[in-house]
Design a protein around this nucleic acid. Structure first.
Lengths: 216, 216
DNA sequence: CTGGATCCCTCACGATACTG
DNA sequence: CAGTATCGTGAGGGATCCAG
């Protein structure tokens, strides 16, 4: 690969030669929610230099993790989308995200939330139906974090996470950077509301349900 | 971390800041089988510069992925061992190894097998009890690849992988670099024996069982 | 002999400017 | 919008050296 390989005949070494370069896994994370354009990726990864983004996209295309596709119709646009092989990394990324979330400290002042990182956080922290108390189903939440809005629904035990506002949600959850502490169980839902780090619109008791449904 | 972070409040970003640096995950892989000394790690990672190994060990200790421990008794020795937190990466590494194994091409001439990469390959490719045909249980194999010898046992559905030879194994499997193709199902066990890429000592039919028990 | 530290060189990455 | 071009910096590669 770009830098000299690891010299081992080993699946893990091979994986790292493909997706171990800086930024690669974050690009893949952002593509998990669907095809994106160069500029979309740039926005989702505010600190990536454009030449590095170019280089990664080229390498990941060569290794069949993603494809470059040209939209033919009205506005001719280039999009990048994961191949089936690339999409197989979904579970690995969710697990790695859960692992890293456990050692998240207080956010630095220059760190930001992005839509894709929030969507991944919700998908990765979803407890399925094996949680202690079964949540009422269906349920829909709208999550607003520092201007980013995503929708989270649970229906028949199936989780759905999409960008944008939710139509008539059961609960609207608005927060600055109090979300990690809530998902990690470092503060209780009631504490979060009392301290003002989380504000809700709707029945506040639903935040308990939310916190037990989504928990790292 | 060492290089400037990714600037995102995100579990995956955090994980990559901790273990995303070059060589880090391979060091962790080698420590999954137990504590190791500096020199052991060097041998398992033939291409790693010693200063990089030093730096990674220091960083991974600061992030609580591993601990440095000094063996007090007879020979005063320094060993590095994973913390519980570090060991939580086991499943992630197995999954990533399976993913990468799918795009392993023919080995380059300067690429080598190592004991830890072999042990991980066997653990990652173990199909448990959900394989089509239930293998006879217990079963023990001795695997010899380019001078490296490991033992693989299956008992009560539990997999055991240890270094060194096996006492009275059901089957001894000896191979050069024909192993990946066998585990990936690119060649059948009988083809592998006929072509000479795999040699067995014991009942050759047991290689079919082996190949269905261990399959990426 | 283990467990590193030090030096030098190269190239990947980071930042920014620029172009079809 | 979708990149390419340029250039400075620092992490990684490789060899050597040193203390306990």
């Amino acid at each position: 690969m770009s830098r000299r390989g690891y010299g081992q005949i080993c699946g893990l070494s091979r994986a790292l030669e493909i997706v171990g370069e800086r930024w690669a896994l974050l690009i893949i994370r952002d593509l998990l929610s669907g095809p994106k354009r160069f500029t979309d990726l740039r926005q989702g990864l505010p600190r990536i230099p454009t030449n590095v983004l170019s280089a990664r996209l080229k390498e990941l295309e060569e290794t069949a993790v993603l494809q470059r596709r040209i939209l033919p119709r009205p506005a001719t646009a280039v999009v990048y989308e994961l191949t089936d092989y690339g999409r197989e990394l979904d579970d690995v990324l969710l697990a790695l995200g859960r692992w890293g979330a456990q050692s998240m400290g207080d956010p630095e002042v220059d760190e930001v939330y992005t839509r894709e990182s929030l969507m991944m956080a919700m998908r990765g922290s979803y407890q399925g139906n094996d949680g202690a108390q079964a949540p009422r189903d269906p349920r829909s939440y709208e999550l607003r974090v520092t201007g980013i809005v995503i929708s989270v629904t649970v229906q028949d035990g199936q989780l759905g996470v999409t960008e944008g506002p939710q139509l008539d949600p059961d609960l609207v959850i608005e927060t600055g950077n109090g979300l990690p502490a809530l998902l990690l169980g470092q503060v209780s839902p009631s504490q979060a509301i009392e301290s003002g780090s989380v504000r809700v619109t709707g029945n506040p008791e639903l935040l308990d349900e939310f916190a037990s449904t989504f928990r790292v």
